[in-house]
Design a protein around this nucleic acid. Sequence first.
DNA 1: ATCACTTATGAAATCGATTTCATAGCCCAA
DNA 2: TTGGGCTATGAAATCGATTTCATAAGTGAT
Lengths: 377, 377
Amino acid sequence: MTTIADVAKRAGVSPVTVSRVINSASNVNPATRDKVERAIRELHYVPNSAARSLRSKRTNAIALLVPDITNPFWTTVARGVEDAAQSEGYSILLCNTDEDPTKQLHYLDVVISRRVDGVIIAPYSADARKLKRLREREIPTVVVDRRIQGWEVDTVIGDSISGARALVKHLIDLGHQRIAVLSGPLNTSSAEDRVTGYTIALTEAGIPIDRRMIRRGEFKTSSGETLTNQLLDEGLRPTAIFATNNSIALGVVDAVDQRGLRIPQDIALVSFDDIPHLSHVFPFLTVAVQPAYEMGIKAAQLLLSRLNGEQDSQPCQIVLPTCLIVRYSCGGKPDDINLPFRKDILPEKKVPVQPLSLEERRELLRRIPGLKLPAYC
Amino acid sequence: MTTIADVAKRAGVSPVTVSRVINSASNVNPATRDKVERAIRELHYVPNSAARSLRSKRTNAIALLVPDITNPFWTTVARGVEDAAQSEGYSILLCNTDEDPTKQLHYLDVVISRRVDGVIIAPYSADARKLKRLREREIPTVVVDRRIQGWEVDTVIGDSISGARALVKHLIDLGHQRIAVLSGPLNTSSAEDRVTGYTIALTEAGIPIDRRMIRRGEFKTSSGETLTNQLLDEGLRPTAIFATNNSIALGVVDAVDQRGLRIPQDIALVSFDDIPHLSHVFPFLTVAVQPAYEMGIKAAQLLLSRLNGEQDSQPCQIVLPTCLIVRYSCGGKPDDINLPFRKDILPEKKVPVQPLSLEERRELLRRIPGLKLPAYC
DNA sequence: ATCACTTATGAAATCGATTTCATAGCCCAA
DNA sequence: TTGGGCTATGAAATCGATTTCATAAGTGAT
């Protein structure tokens, strides 16, 4: 395989000069540059990045650790990250952690071993100690979709609280009172924030909180199914269910369907996160969407700006606004609700979610004493 | 950052010995090994893979080039590749080519520069010359989902011909005669194979081929929409549409819906590739599925076996069987076809697709003279 | 006791780039 | 004409591992 020395010999210069050309250093004579570039082309020379990073201590690679690339939310985030990174010449190392502590730990070692320049991670736990390895080695890190405690680190999240609040308010406005929420793990901030938004909406409407209507499991379809069945078996008779992510929502659809209940006639359903292709088809879920692609882009841009030392050193927290997409899973418009055709129901309404204002926030903390809002609110 | 020399000093041995321990070479005294392992733990030492690959010429990384990770088919393939690779200690470099020649070329340079040990690629064109760079440098390569011409290379594909044939046969069995096919680009083998399967099924049923019913575009939702509109605008009145991939199918759903037509009452729809979550919801597409996850696993395993030099050197071609999943987008069972509930329609039927037998293949070539079956049939 | 062989270890060379430092040549101002 | 400041270039050191080759010590057969 051709090396920089081969190119140098062919161009009649030293390896240093070739290196300068490759890295487009300024102080190279145009004539020399031409000679070198010709030699590079003729020899089909492509620099060896292992050698390069060994000396320069930069790999031009970033690692992306997500729970599961198979979930369309993460797929979209990943695509955003890849696009942003690629445009700056960075490569992506893809890691699926499956929300599994052991796997995450393993991948952190891979990440360290490969000396990636930075990491974008959706950690499986809010506990910063799990990320000790990154912190110790001062590897530039951006946390996405989740907040963590005990480490001031760059973070990009969606406004889960406001999104959940809007979703539940939507249900309440349609007349629902007995609303259940099926959430993810306790130690995951996005899951908890969505429960918080739920609590806020109910309280604002003067509806008392029934603890039994708040269920926690995992962000998985199977979990959504189990929780729905438990809920309905216990005879709590919710008229609406709020699934805190897309996977859980699918589980609800399944469980409800198996019991011969209908969405929205027998039970309403709303969900956090869209399932891209589901907008095309029945039951036309009403959802709060986070800008997943932008989340990926923003996370990558933030990370890259750190790598270039552009930013001041303060870690920052970016909260992306969510959007309510009103479709048809909560009842409403057409009389003949049996018709599963979009044109009978459309246009779907897309409503930006108003983030909690400062006053609302104060008001809330007064009215709901048990409520701890996260710092970003 | 700690290096192998630091560990060596601490353990009172030479760097070579540490290296032996890291790479679990056999000839190290157990006592020495213990000392070294303790030192490694105490210093939190993690080897630098750049240095490592520079000398050893192995990166323990493979590149995955797919059109778009956002398509659930590719997502699933990617997950399979990642799982198989991870279990053998390989990392994945993720690249989205968007079926774009320029992007593909760019990524091939990245791949070469990073000296990945191998490449898994779904090339945007069947023309092997586009992959010259891989071939010249003898980078172990596995082509997935598509065949290419002009290079005998390891390949893993689904049995598109048989799958398409089964899908169209299913339509014919239900009484459809005017069946349109909306396919992908001409230079992509999976697109063409599906058209071939379509042709075979029609011919076997004695239905003449109407060239106008065969449309080609891109593997995109927008393309599916456009092609459907053209088709219907020209008054060809197909009673059924065969979409050759999931994205195109979604475009068909949209276009059909916008015209106030109904699936399956006014027009039947079948599709190649599943859309995972769509099985949960109306219109319950009848599809031919390829084992996407297994395709990823198989491709990675094949590649890794090449890297370990296990296989004989003959390039091989693995054809994975497809499966017909009969749901409800072609009409059929229930009388009240307005009911968009799974339980009214289930159980969905999953039927393994019989691959074309040798005799059938001979027979076909005789009966349909214009037909060129690809080598793998 | 000698030789052949195995086991355990280390010294030095090496992978292919970048970084550091030195220098030659040139221009311009004092 | 001397010295300061550029510009363009190269020699040598360096990054952190692995590979190659050498060797000491132990073992067992003759």
